[in-house]
Design a protein around this nucleic acid. Sequence first.
DNA 1: CGGTGGATTCTCT
DNA 2: GAGAATCCACCGA
Length: 183
Amino acid sequence: MTGGIRDVLAGPVDVAARALLGCRFTTGIGGERTAVVLTEVEAYGGADDPASHAHRGRTARNAAMFGPPGRLYVYRSYGIHWCMNVVTGPEGAPAAVLLRAGSPAEGVEVMERRRGRRDHLTDGPGKLAQALGVGGEWDGASLFEAPLSLEPPVSPPRSVDAGPRVGITREVDRPWRFVLRRG
DNA sequence: CGGTGGATTCTCT
DNA sequence: GAGAATCCACCGA
């Protein structure tokens, strides 16, 4: 074994997306430790993927997608929420995996405070970023350097469902949304 | 340089 | 199930 999950993130984005399911994503932002197990992700490619932010080339917003794999791409959605992606593929080739949902695994009380509620803590991309304390200042940060960490699951997920991506208007038929099926 | 619309979430009906 | 909230990157002029 060489780099484990890091090698997978350097490969094709849809393969990387599947591999991220079941991973434990931990943040120690603001001195408060929170973690989730990723349960829902979506893959986004580059110029060949009309639904991707990188479809029209490099811009100030999507620059992180062109960087090396294993970093965060964080952007503001609908002027209100932050959404997190894991950059994949080789440097210079834009691709990223949107983290849509997870299961709270650590620091639940911190997440409750950040979210301002006790239910629906991490069941959407904006909610997940808020619960973990991730905002725009983390755009480009490495997942393998403190205060972030990404740990692969002990054993691979038993079953993964694939379907169309959510909330997009282009390329709606590409089945690049992956959901961890409980079992 | 101004108009536009989004990889969303919440509240209310 | 529908509509509002709210910002800024992007695109066309």
